[in-house]
Amino acid sequence: MAKSTQMGMNRTGAQMAPENVKQMQQDASQLMQLQDTQVQVGSEFDAIEMRLKEIAETDRVGSVPLPGTVKGAVKAGMQKMMGRNAEVFIDKLGERLAYERTGVRLYEALIVKCRGAAQEGRFNVSIDQLLHIHDEEARHFKLLTEAMTKLGADPTAMTPCADVVGVQSIGILQVLTDPRTSIPQCLNAMLTVELADNAAWELLIQLAQDMGQDDLAEQFEGALAAEEEHLAIVKQMLQDAVQAEAG
């Protein structure tokens, strides 16, 4: 089995260029004293001030869409939430929907990676287990689509929280789709996904109960149970893969 982690000519550390780094340190202490560079004025708090100003004056990323139809606004599910901030619940449903939908694609990327590695005999991750998780993520996406439709919300809209988790997911996606990343590196990224997903479903169940949506809360309990299993599987796969590499 070829190792994906190995010793080599990594040039990033200071110890790889001791003479140059020594000179850099000298320069940093001497040339920094030149009056004209002005670097001694102020501190890192200057940038913090700039950030605070922007935070105080900013707009939000966007809004939760209004129900597309009058019918949507008067749906029984929506009625139950009268007096509460229903948009918070809709926003979080939209977030989870986007997360699960992207999750399906992330598992597809991971399965492709594992198939590639299996062909080369490098790692022996259970593709069947990954397919099982993939299918459940798709079911959760469907569940959330139905939940939003039932409440009269538009499941095809990108809510603000959906937008923000999209930004969050970019790094994960880059890890999963890079042909150079190893199975353990990909599983590590998926562990982040599953840990966050578990906590998010717990929150969604709580929110559904608070909003008087007990039937939805019950269905979400089922999704959480599945996610707990996903987390356990990914954690175990990662552990096995890293230990196998460590020998």
């Binding site: 986007a98 939908r101 992207t102 694609r105 095809t156 990108m158 999209g166 997911s169 789709t177």
Partner: peptide, 10 residues
Amino acid sequence: DRLEGKDANN
């Protein structure tokens, strides 16, 4: 759609 799971129509 297939890489990110996102709808271009957004």
